[in-house]
Lab assay of single mutants.
Amino acid sequence: VTTYKLVINGKTLKGETTTKAVDAETAEKAFKQYANDNGVDAVWTYDDATKTFTVTEMV
């Protein structure tokens, strides 16, 4: 189990959160659900070296 981080650069929601998951795909599903629940529709990137997902909402 690995800890993954999500950085949110949204128009109305900004911040960071983490989740523990067995792999990046599982973490991504959890983070996308979190973003969807909070109304963030954005572009996703992932950095495997830092285990960090970044979501940037387009203006």
Rank of each mutant, 00 (worst) to 15 (best):
Y34L: 07
F53R: 00
Y4F: 10
E28M: 14
G10I: 15
D48S: 09
V40G: 05
K20E: 13
T50A: 05
I8E: 01
D47K: 01
V22S: 09
A42H: 08
A27H: 00
Y34F: 12
V7S: 03
T56E: 07
K29R: 12
K5S: 05
T45Y: 08
V55E: 00
K11T: 13
D47R: 01
F53Q: 00
F53P: 00
E57R: 06
K20M: 13
D37G: 09
I8N: 01
Y4K: 01
A30M: 12
T56I: 09
K51F: 08
T2L: 10
Y4S: 02
D41L: 11
Y46D: 00
T50S: 08
V40D: 04
V1D: 08
G10C: 15
N38F: 15
V7R: 04
T18C: 13
T26L: 04
Q33F: 06
T54G: 01
T54I: 06
A27K: 00
V40K: 05
T45S: 12
T3F: 06
T3E: 11
Y34P: 00
V7D: 02
D48F: 06
D23S: 08
G39K: 07
K20D: 12
T45M: 07
V59N: 11
Y4W: 04
V22Q: 08
L13I: 12
G15D: 09
F53K: 00
D47F: 02
M58T: 11
L6E: 01
V22N: 07
K11L: 14
I8T: 04
V55K: 03
D41V: 12
D23W: 02
T3I: 13
A21S: 04
Y46V: 00
T52I: 04
G10T: 15
D47S: 04
D47Q: 03
G10Q: 06
E16R: 07
E57G: 06
V55C: 13
D37F: 15
V22P: 13
E16V: 13
T26A: 12
A30F: 15
N38V: 15
E16P: 06
Y34Q: 03
V55W: 06
D47T: 03
N38L: 15
Y34T: 03
K51R: 09
T18E: 09
T18V: 08
T2C: 12
N9L: 13
A24R: 14
T19G: 03
I8F: 13
A49C: 07
K5N: 04
A27N: 00
T56S: 08
A49L: 11
T19I: 15
K51I: 01
T26N: 06
Y46K: 00
E25Q: 12
F31P: 00
D41H: 11
T19W: 09
T52K: 02
Y4T: 01
A21T: 03
Y34I: 09
A49T: 11
K14C: 15
Y46T: 00
K5H: 11
F31K: 00
T52Q: 03
A24L: 09
K11E: 08
A30T: 13
N38W: 15
G15E: 12
V55N: 01
E25A: 13
T2W: 11
G15C: 15
G10V: 15
A35L: 15
T54R: 04
A35R: 06
F31W: 02
D37S: 11
V22M: 09
Y46C: 00
D41N: 12
M58I: 13
A21L: 02
I8K: 01
W44V: 02
T50W: 02
A42K: 05
T17L: 14
K20G: 04
N9E: 06
A27D: 00
T54A: 03
K20T: 11
T19R: 05
K32V: 05
M58P: 11
D41F: 13
A21P: 01
A27R: 01
T26I: 05
T19Q: 05
T50F: 03
V40C: 10
D47L: 02
T50Y: 03
F31N: 00
V1N: 08
D48M: 06
V40A: 06
A24T: 07
A42F: 15
E16A: 08
V43M: 09
G10H: 10
T52N: 00
D37H: 10
V1H: 09
K29D: 04
F53A: 00
N9F: 13
T26V: 05
T45E: 10
A30E: 11
V1E: 12
L6Y: 01
D41A: 09
A49V: 10
V43G: 04
T2M: 10
T17N: 04
Y46M: 00
V7C: 07
K20I: 13
K11R: 13
A27Q: 00
E16S: 10
A42M: 14
V59R: 08
G39L: 15
Y46A: 00
N38A: 13
A21I: 02
T3S: 05
V40F: 15
Q33V: 09
T26Y: 04
F53G: 00
L13G: 11
Y46L: 01
T18I: 08
Y46Q: 00
V7M: 04
K20H: 09
L13R: 07
A49W: 06
V59P: 12
E57S: 07
K11P: 12
A24D: 03
G10N: 06
K5G: 01
Q33C: 07
K20A: 09
Y34W: 14
A42Y: 14
K32M: 09
N9D: 08
F53D: 00
M58N: 10
N38Y: 15
L13S: 07
A27T: 01
L13E: 07
A42E: 04
K32S: 03
V43C: 10
Y4R: 01
T3L: 12
T45G: 04
I8D: 01
Q33K: 13
N36S: 14
L6H: 01
A42C: 12
T52F: 01
G15N: 07
L6W: 03
V7Q: 04
F53L: 02
T50G: 03
T17D: 03
E28W: 15
G10D: 04
Q33R: 10
V43F: 10
V43Y: 10
N38R: 13
T19K: 04
T54N: 04
G39F: 15
K5P: 02
G10R: 08
E25H: 09
T50C: 03
D41W: 11
V43L: 09
D41Y: 12
T50I: 05
A24I: 09
A21W: 04
E57D: 10
D48P: 12
E16L: 09
V55Y: 06
A35I: 15
N9Y: 13
T2I: 13
K14D: 05
V40Q: 05
V59W: 13
V59I: 11
K11Y: 09
V1P: 07
V1R: 08
G10F: 15
W44K: 00
T54V: 05
N36P: 07
E57I: 10
E28L: 15
G15Y: 15
M58H: 10
T19E: 03
E57N: 06
T2R: 09
L13C: 15
A27Y: 01
Y46W: 02
K5I: 09
K29N: 05
L13D: 06
K5M: 06
D23K: 03
M58E: 11
V40P: 06
I8L: 09
D23M: 03
N9V: 13
L6A: 02
T45P: 00
V40L: 14
K14G: 07
D47M: 02
E57A: 07
T45K: 07
D37W: 14
M58L: 13
N9Q: 08
L13T: 07
V22H: 09
G39E: 06
K20F: 12
D47N: 08
V43K: 08
T26P: 01
E25T: 10
T12N: 12
A30P: 01
T19Y: 14
T19M: 14
N38I: 15
M58F: 12
T54K: 03
T54W: 11
A24K: 15
A24H: 09
D41E: 11
K32N: 03
L13V: 10
T17W: 15
D48C: 04
F31M: 02
D48E: 12
T18P: 01
A21D: 01
G15M: 14
T45L: 07
K51M: 05
V43R: 07
A49Q: 09
T12H: 13
T2N: 10
I8W: 14
N38D: 06
L6C: 10
K32P: 00
N36I: 15
W44C: 02
D47V: 03
L13F: 15
K20R: 12
D41C: 12
F31G: 00
T2F: 13
A24E: 04
K11V: 13
V55G: 04
